[in-house]
Design a protein around this nucleic acid. Structure first.
Lengths: 120, 120
DNA sequence: CTGCATCCTTAATGATACTG
DNA sequence: CAGTATCATTAAGGATGCAG
C-alpha cells in the first residue's frame, strides 16, 4: 500500500525532474517573491532582479505545469495577468525561503572562504 | 555595526552568486550524499546518479572554494581522495535535504498536475 | 501589458583519451 | 583512482520585433 518509493539520487527516478525544477535559482526567487502575495507579471519581473521576460515566462509556465503556481489572466486592455502560489507551491515557501536566507546570512563566510581559496 | 544587508533578489548583490551555487540540483545531491558521511570521489560518483566525472570534479571544486566541502587527498597508490562537509556545509544539510525529500514526497502530486496541464 | 517567435550567444554537460 | 585536457553537444539565457 505504500506508494512507490522515489529516490532523487537515482538518475532514472522521475522525481529527479522535480528536484531539478525546484533546486534552481529562478524557481527559488519566484517562489520567494510569490510567498508574500500574488503578483502581476511585471511586478514579478521587477522583484526577481535580472530575469528576462523570456526566462520569467518559461519558468512560470513550468511552475504552472507542475502545479506550483496558478495563473489568472483578466480580459482587459491592456492585459493583466496575476500569478500566485497554489497550496502545493506554498509548501515550498519555507524550504526555498530558507535557501534564500542561507545565501544572505552566510555570504560573508562564503566570501572569506573564496578569498582564502584564491589566495593559495 | 550591522553587517551589510544582502538581498538575493537584487541582480547585482554578491549573495546572488551564493544562491546560484546552492540552488542547484548537483549541489543539492552532493550535499545530501555527504550529509551521511565522508565519501571518496568514486563513492560520490556512484551515489549521485548520472553525474559525470567532469561535472562532479567541477562542482566539488566550487563547493570547496566556497568553504562548504573539505577535500583530503592521501598520498597513496592508487590515489584516495575523501570529501566531507565543513561546519558551514553542514548548515546546508537540513535545507537541501528538505528539498530532496520534497521532490520525493510530492512527486506524484506534481505528476498529476503535469498530466492535467498536458491534457488541455 | 503580456508573451510568443526568432535568432544569437554563452554556459552547462557529456565523451573520450590520457597522466601521476 | 582521481583527476586533467580536449572536443563535441546540448541546454540556458539574452535581444529584438511583433501580436492580442
Amino acid at each position: 500500500m505504500s506508494t512507490p518509493e522515489w529516490n532523487v539520487m537515482l538518475a532514472t527516478c522521475p522525481s529527479r525532474t522535480s528536484l531539478a525544477r525546484i533546486a534552481n535559482k529562478w524557481t527559488a526567487m519566484i517562489v520567494i517573491a510569490l510567498s508574500e502575495r500574488r503578483l502581476r507579471f511585471g511586478e514579478l519581473r521587477e522583484m526577481v532582479g535580472g530575469i528576462s521576460g523570456k526566462v520569467l515566462t518559461e519558468t512560470l509556465r513550468d511552475l504552472e505545469r507542475d502545479g506550483l503556481v496558478a495563473r489568472q489572466a483578466y480580459a482587459e486592455i491592456p492585459p493583466r495577468v496575476e500569478y500566485e502560489l497554489t497550496d502545493l507551491g506554498r509548501t515550498l515557501s519555507a524550504p526555498l525561503g530558507a535557501l534564500g536566507r542561507w545565501a544572505e546570512e552566510h555570504y560573508e563566510q562564503v566570501e572569506r572562504a573564496r578569498d582564502a581559496y584564491d589566495t593559495r
